[in-house]
């Protein structure tokens, strides 16, 4: 019987316990001449909250993550709704579902890069605007700023929001909608009073996923972000690979993980509170 426990315990130890213990060990030390010196100091954690740019960038990353989560939910909800309620044929439903997932067969980098070619000064959007005569010279506002980062991240992570909202909407029996119509409720009333409230746990679940993924992203800021769009993962990468300040990187990592765990517990609790038993 105990043999069955071996794989999970081994997995948990090798890939979770030991790495986190090491991360913690690193975070307590410091560097001298780019070399790691062990120690037992919490100074690095204090620096996360006092030294610029760490806290500022964490907050900015959180803002980008939040905006991505909100935008994804706004884009995903109607799509999930159409797939769940307005697609009668099973094959069309499957096709739409597949279309949502298909972008994930393409490389992340390619997708992020694609936005560069859409939003750039020689990009498709500017070419179209100039062609239609809306503007004489390329609009530079589209690319290399927070807007383009959020847009790219929204595009990339929306499928996660669609799937979790869809999973929730799909569980709503058609008889609920029929009952509401039968009782004299119009389309908007059904949306506001029944369908949307029941879908809230799906929105939250999708929100956690898109927020976490966007918060920790480091590709989009590099490809489509401006010089000021550095996110916290970029900082960590720099600390690790350029500055060789592993203790600081480890401290930031642990702070983010703790924040993440807190957030997940909070939203998990919210999800439980808003859950309805169908």
């Amino acid at each position: 019987m105990l043999l069955w426990l071996l794989p999970p315990v081994a997995w948990f130890s090798v890939f979770i316990l030991v790495p986190y213990a090491m991360l913690f060990w690193y975070s307590l030390g410091h560097t001298e001449d780019m070399r790691f010196v062990p120690g037992l100091s919490l100074a690095n954690f204090a620096r996360v909250f006092t030294d610029e740019p760490y806290l500022g960038v964490i907050l900015k990353s959180a803002r980008i993550g939040l905006m991505t989560a909100i935008l994804s939910a706004i884009v995903a909800w109607p799509l999930a709704f159409v797939i769940a309620f307005h697609t009668r044929s099973a094959s069309v439903k499957f096709a739409l579902y597949l279309l949502v997932i298909v972008p994930w067969w393409a490389s992340y980098l390619v997708k992020a890069y694609a936005w560069k070619t859409i939003l750039g000064t020689n990009g498709i959007l500017n070419a179209t605007l100039q062609g239609l005569g809306f503007t004489d010279e390329p609009v530079r506002l589209f690319l290399y700023n927070e807007f383009s980062v959020v847009l790219t991240l929204t595009y990339i992570f929306t499928p996660f929001a669609v799937l979790s909202i869809y999973a929730q909407l799909e569980r709503i029996p058609t008889s609920l909608v029929e009952a509401a119509k039968n009782l004299g409720a119009g389309g908007w009333e059904i949306f506001w009073r029944i369908v949307l409230p029941i879908s809230v746990p799906g929105i939250i679940a999708g929100g956690i996923i898109t927020f976490s993924l966007a918060f920790g992203d480091f590709v989009a800021p590099v490809l489509v972000g401006g010089s000021d769009s550095v996110m916290i993962s970029n900082i960590v990468i720099n600390l690790l690979g350029v500055a060789f300040d592993w203790p600081m990187a480890a401290a930031i990592g642990l702070v983010i993980i703790t924040l993440g765990l807190g957030l997940i517990s909070l939203t998990g609790w919210l999800e439980e509170k808003t859950k309805v038993r169908l």
């Binding site: 008889s175 609920l176 029929e178 009952a179 509401a180 004299g184 409720a185 009073r193 309805v276 038993r277």
Partner: peptide, 19 residues
């Protein structure tokens, strides 16, 4: 339209609003 008929229906699966 259904919403205008003011005939009320009782469903087999009850169709109560769970929220």
């Amino acid at each position: 339209p259904v919403t205008d008929r003011e005939m009320r229906m009782v469903f087999q699966d009850f169709a109560l609003f769970p929220n």
